[in-house]
Amino acid sequence: MTAVFGGVVDTLEVQLGGRRLRIVTERRGPQGAPLWLLLPALSTVSSRSEWQPLVMAVQDRVQLVSFDWPGFGDSDRPALAYDVALLGGCLEAVLTDLTSRQAGPLTLVAAGHSAAVALALAGTWSDRWSRFVAVAPTWRGPLPTMTGWSPGRFGWLRRLVALPLIGPALYRLNTSRAMLRLMLRRHVWLDPGLLTPDRLRQQQRLARRRGSRFASSAFVSGGLDAADERGWWLEQARCLQCPFHVVLATAAPPRSTREMELLAQTADAVTHLPGRLGLHQEFGALLGQRLLEALAS
């Protein structure tokens, strides 16, 4: 397996959804240094490679660990009914593995929708975190956000995409370069110059890996949402037993911005950075600098 940010690649076998899944992890930095666990955002193009700009900026001043969520990136992508409980089980397995290897608390840095997955564990795990950082956090998938409907109303879409023949054909249309360009330009990246033909081809290859349609369609349709209403994640934030830091994206879509700002009202620290929902990638170097400053203080 190829390292995506110059670290040591490993695998973790986890029992999830009635299957034994291989979760691909990557670690970089000196043993014994403060540990940051970086959770990739959930999206059609989710991958631990999103953290490369931050990792390159931070270098070896801290120990960095990231992984690919089940159904995404280099991890196993079987045909499963992906939901937040399955992802939460994966995160718990990774946290258990890390705490067994290294004493002391870690800083959990979660981008986008992964912040809601982490908040679901607030009551049982956050006393072992030195800080929880939510970067451009979201709690609803794209379709529930756009329509205001509950995730249950999109179950038909998840079932349709899971069908043989029809499902792959529909998913292929949804991951055309034109569709990916629209998604990335409107919701993820601020600079249109990032949408080069080479970058779009890379994102398309990532989105079209065998088996990717199951977890991706779950995310888009709200199948990975932990709740139907915002009160849930505000309450979970209040359950945190560690300092809570929210990083707001100044150019995020309006609906997402409103939700981030509400969550930020529960935080101990708030940072405003340029960017949209992919600010941890586009402005990863600046984010890394701000987090190092927070660590030093």
Rank of each mutant, 00 (worst) to 15 (best):
L163Q: 14
Q63H: 00
G89W: 00
V65H: 00
Q63P: 02
W129T: 03
R28V: 13
E26R: 09
R181V: 09
T107V: 11
L262C: 04
L80K: 10
R238L: 02
M179H: 13
G17I: 09
G284A: 13
R27D: 09
L195F: 04
T257F: 08
S49Y: 03
G32E: 11
L160Q: 15
A103L: 03
R209L: 06
F154G: 06
L64W: 00
L157A: 12
L143F: 07
A169W: 14
V65F: 01
V246G: 12
T196P: 14
T107I: 08
G112S: 15
G275E: 05
A93H: 01
A162D: 14
R185K: 09
G141P: 10
S100I: 00
Y171G: 11
G17V: 12
D198K: 13
R28E: 12
P151V: 10
F72C: 09
P168Y: 13
G112K: 13
T2E: 15
V84T: 12
G7D: 09
V14Y: 07
G275K: 05
L86Y: 08
H187T: 15
A237S: 07
A33T: 02
G88M: 03
H280R: 03
R230F: 04
R213M: 12
V65D: 04
W36C: 05
L87A: 08
Q59E: 09
E92W: 01
A136D: 09
V117A: 01
A33S: 11
Q15V: 12
G32Q: 08
S43N: 12
S212Y: 10
R128K: 03
L273D: 06
Q59C: 05
R140W: 02
R255A: 04
F67W: 05
L16A: 08
S212M: 13
A111N: 05
L160H: 15
R210W: 14
A81S: 14
S100L: 05
P197R: 14
L86K: 06
F154K: 14
T138K: 05
V247G: 10
Q236A: 07
S75H: 00
V133W: 01
Q265E: 03
P254R: 06
L39N: 01
T257L: 12
R131G: 06
L38R: 08
P253T: 06
A267Y: 10
G231T: 11
G112V: 08
L91S: 03
A116V: 00
V135I: 02
L42H: 06
L262F: 03
